[in-house]
Amino acid sequence: MKKRVGVFVCECGTNIAATVDTERVAEYAKTLPGVVYATNYKYMCSDPGQELIRNAIQEQNLEQVVVASCSPRMHENTFRKATATGGLNAYMMEMVNIREQNSWVTHDREQATRKAQSLVRMAVAKALRNRPLQAATVPITKKAMVIGGGIAGMQAALDIAEGGQQVVIVEREASIGGKMTQLDKTFPTMDCAA
């Protein structure tokens, strides 16, 4: 299992760097089994940040990428794409959440840094066992349902319909219109609501 792992520690401006010593985390990462390259950078999600990852994949011959930054719910796709354009399978990338679940919820710099180190250690261990995955495809039923026929529902339905797609509006009252139909003139134009 001698895979070549690269670790990229993001500072997110000061969002992470203010509480986590990112340089120390990167230095620590270099001591982990399998890690051949580690660095920290101000904004890993930025163009130069992604370029850094792509170059490292090529130059260091990386087989796995670990990005320690914000939540994967935020930028997992960004870094998967960067990994893929760097020449690896998009799923050879693990994220470490050192922002939402570390730097933003921890006050003490020493504690936060040590937490980041152990989170990176866990992610590297997981990344070493990553396998390339291929996405399958499913067909899309091109018909939308709008639940609620008030202003929001009618506007969304009209825009979808104008875009050439089928829409069903489900409204629990016997008429569409919602609260809007109960209103008189509306601000700031004072035109009629209906």
Binding site: I160, A161, V167, V168, V170, R172
Partner: peptide, 19 residues
């Protein structure tokens, strides 16, 4: 309202609920 009702791509299901 009328625009939504008359649009050929829109089907209205009023007095209905998603179960």
């Amino acid at each position: 309202m009328v625009a939504a009702a008359q649009h050929p791509n829109i089907e209205l299901m009023t007095y209905s609920e998603v179960t």
